[in-house]
């Protein structure tokens, strides 16, 4: 953001004040996420920096909370459950959502905006309401406290993300490409696999990632619907924070921050790939 040449002295001062303010807000946004990374290596069972840590004494640092995490059967079981539920519900949500997005992006879709509003509503309805409603209903049909119940609930929550990302991808899809492929002699199957699929895949994959992270991070519905066997990672963290607060939570949190960085990078790469394929040059 360059300062225009006609700026007065007051404006110049304001410009730097503004940049300073923005830096502070960015610190507020990202600082908390970065602060837990060193804290998770604390040798003491506290949530704050010890004297040894501040003087960079190696004795102040340890990997004991990571060891705690990787040797605890409760945590490992919770990770396993999170992956089972996450992958299963992502799979369901991606298939249902992508097929529906294909229909929704048709010009002739009847009642398009009403249906879209319904499909997105699981994202808007407060989780506690969805959780309570599903608990009441799933108990009646014996789905409460089962893996299937949790998977179905998470599928519902993941669907809006898949629908939004895939319809966005499809809306910018240039249908003349299909005609061009046909005119060059490709049959419909070949066109689908060689032209349509490569262009749509990034959207589908990022929708799936959104659905997965939604399920992986979801507490409220699992809290109501799951039995002791379906304890997922967020539930383990939740009870850890509520009951016996130990820095193992910080170790888990650090791992999750790294995971989200990884996901974010993947998404960014996908976005660039999709832009390159469409011939939009990145800035």
């Amino acid at each position: 953001m360059a300062i225009p040449s006609y700026a007065t002295r007051g404006e110049r001062i304001w410009h730097y004040v503004f940049l300073g303010l923005c830096a502070l807000i960015f610190l507020f946004l990202v600082g908390p996420l970065l602060i837990i990374i060193p804290l998770s290596f604390n040798a003491q069972p506290y949530f704050t920096f010890s004297q040894e840590m501040l003087t960079l004494d190696p004795a102040g640092y340890s990997l004991r909370w990571y060891e705690d995490f990787f040797t605890s059967s409760a945590w490992l079981n919770a990770i396993k459950n999170s992956f089972i539920v996450g992958i299963a519900s992502t799979f369901l949500a991606t298939i249902l959502g992508t097929v529906a997005a294909l229909g929704l992006s048709s010009r002739h879709m009847p009642a398009r905006s009403a249906i879209m509003a319904l499909l997105i509503s699981p994202m808007i309805v407060p989780l506690i309401i969805s959780a309570a409603a599903m608990f009441f209903f799933f108990s009646k049909v014996n789905l409460a406290q089962t893996y299937l119940g949790v998977v179905l609930a998470h599928t519902v929550l993941g669907i809006p993300f898949v629908v939004i990302t895939v319809t966005a991808t499809l809306s910018s899809f240039d249908t003349t490409l299909i005609r061009a492929a046909h005119s060059l002699g490709a049959n419909p199957t070949r066109t689908f696999f060689k032209v349509v699929l490569p262009l749509v895949t990034p959207g589908v994959v990022s929708g799936a990632l959104f659905a997965f992270i939604t399920s992986f991070d979801e507490v409220v519905v699992v809290l109501f619907l799951a039995g002791p066997e379906q304890r997922t990672m967020p539930i383990q963290m939740w009870s850890g924070i509520r009951e016996q607060i130990s820095p193992t939570i910080l170790a888990v949190a650090t791992l999750l921050v790294l995971l989200s960085m990884l996901l974010l990078t993947t998404l960014e790469l996908l976005r660039r790939r999709s832009e390159r394929l469409r011939g939009i040059s990145p800035g």
């Binding site: 946004l29 990202v30 996420l33 602060i35 704050t48 963290m237 910080l250 949190a253 999750l256 989200s260």
Partner: peptide, 17 residues
């Protein structure tokens, strides 16, 4: 990055802070 980070992680960090 915060948008993509687990809600519980973000809540935990505020407890720590």
């Amino acid at each position: 990055l915060p948008f993509w980070t687990s809600l519980l992680v973000r809540t935990t960090t505020w407890i720590a802070i």
